[in-house]
Design a protein around this nucleic acid. Sequence first.
RNA 1: GGCCAGUUGGUGAAGUGGCUUAACACACUGCCCUUUCACGGCAGCAUUCACGGAUUCGAAUUCCGUACUGGUCACCA
Length: 544
Amino acid sequence: MNKELAELLFPNILVTPEELEEKYPVRELKEGAFVTRFGPSPTGFMHIGNLYGAFISSSLAKQSNGVFYLRIEDTDSKREVEGAKELILNALEHFQISYDEGYSKGGAYGPYLQSERKEIYQAYAKRLVEEGKAYPCFMTEEEISEIREGQELRKEMIGIYGHYAVDRNLSLEEVQEHLKNHDPYVIRMKSPGDMHKEIVLHDLIKGDITLPENVIDEVILKKDGIPTYHFAHVVDDHLMRTTHVIRGDEWVPSFPKHLQLNQLLGFKPCKYAHIAPLTKKEDGKIRKLSKRKDPEFSVDYYQQAGIPVEGVRLYLATLANTNFEEWYLQNKDKTIADFTFSFKKMPTGGTLFDMEKLNNICRTYFSRLSAEALYQESLEYYEKYDVSFADIMKKEKERLIAFLDIERDGKRPRKDIATYQDVKKESFYIFDELFYQEENPYQEIKKEEIDIPLLEEYMMRFSTQDSQEEWYEKIKVLAEESGYAPTVKMYKESPEEYKGHIGDICEMLRHVVTGKVQTPNLYNILNILGKQGIEKRIEFFKKQ
RNA sequence: GGCCAGUUGGUGAAGUGGCUUAACACACUGCCCUUUCACGGCAGCAUUCACGGAUUCGAAUUCCGUACUGGUCACCA
């Protein structure tokens, strides 16, 4: 009778599970190779949390010479957002997370778009019905919510199970009757579970977690014949021969369902690793990053803000494995690809996403870059987000690179740049067309403290031919002649004897020439600007 | 409310019975170096690991209870 029921429900499904098993054979991979996947649903933009999961999954596959694939989980047409699939693709590409097979790329285990796999899911659903492990349920939403209310009132477990599963044993005739009336229905699994029994999830990150056995007759096929996440996950990850399911830990509570589904279908379950969600602090409370509420965590925010791809990747790596940061700091010439990630070093609790930390990582990253590389990367950014500055960059390439190259030697590179935006912020004063356009370039400094005649005297002696030592020597002489201490030490010993010290002269020069309190080595900057350039700045300053 | 997990400094965290008078990084403070700032170096920043009890010669690390935080209980993923 189950056979007849299955035919009644799925008359058009001819493909059998056996054929599918054959079509998608077990992958021939080396021992220890991971097959992982990224399974986003196309419901809007990608956010950093999604990227985090993709990053971990791909890293694990790559380092084990396995396979990482992209599967689009679009089983909810109501929530699907147009263009979201492209957003996912773009984000993966931008953050250099490549996949071996998957949506838009193809592969032997496709299709990788769940909406195109309807037949496959139904083949397995049909088999389950045949074996009496699943059944059509014609309950209406009203009936179900009525049951729920009663359950809440009696403090019972909520859901369709046991005697609440009234359609479990519908006769063939009753089903036919419903079908004749075109009553909508879903397919539910017939749970063999026992509420009082427990199962264990051997989670690769969190360790063993004991959970109650599933007893709920979970919906596996919705009324439109499309599977729920639970069913699609079990069928797909089996057929696509996934070895390790890496997903957010919000899935832990539904693991018993997945286990049971695997058993019902006769599959060997994958290994599971549930990663802790990225969280943020809001009003003093910690909560999971949400796609809907936190657009500032959207992946293109980072692009716009000029945060380098590698900086984000490095930060994701430090979050993913708690020992990564130390390793990276100690291995200055290595990259992420050289690091081996392990489940053991993944955080078990929620991880707070810290922009300041990201910032710092980017600083370190930029400090290791050559001036030329920094120039190229920034140029790409500005060509997209600030064309006029990109033009200046191209026109004044040598000048900018000379500037970026200051103090960029191996041992103690400067760390003033955290984003591409900082390139402009830190360098604008070397370009006349930017500097003189500023509304008030001297905001940061106290004008009355500048000794203009002294600076003018200094310019009489200035020469771009001077070496740094000669340059410094000239200032020293000037200091002595004009009542400034030639060394800071001397000034500190008897401050009342001097107007100030040599550092003050340097500072005045810096202020007038750049309008900034903080710059890289002044000697280099003066040389980039040239004698005329500096004189022009002094004249300009006098007019302010 | 049921079930599950987590709780170490301002922050992220290392740590799974003695090597911990708690690593490392960020932030902060002070000093040093330096032509200023920055960079860098040094030092300071939890005598204590949510709280209470138990086990033990010995616990941040094991067990029990309490509190708090988070996750989850859809024909969403």
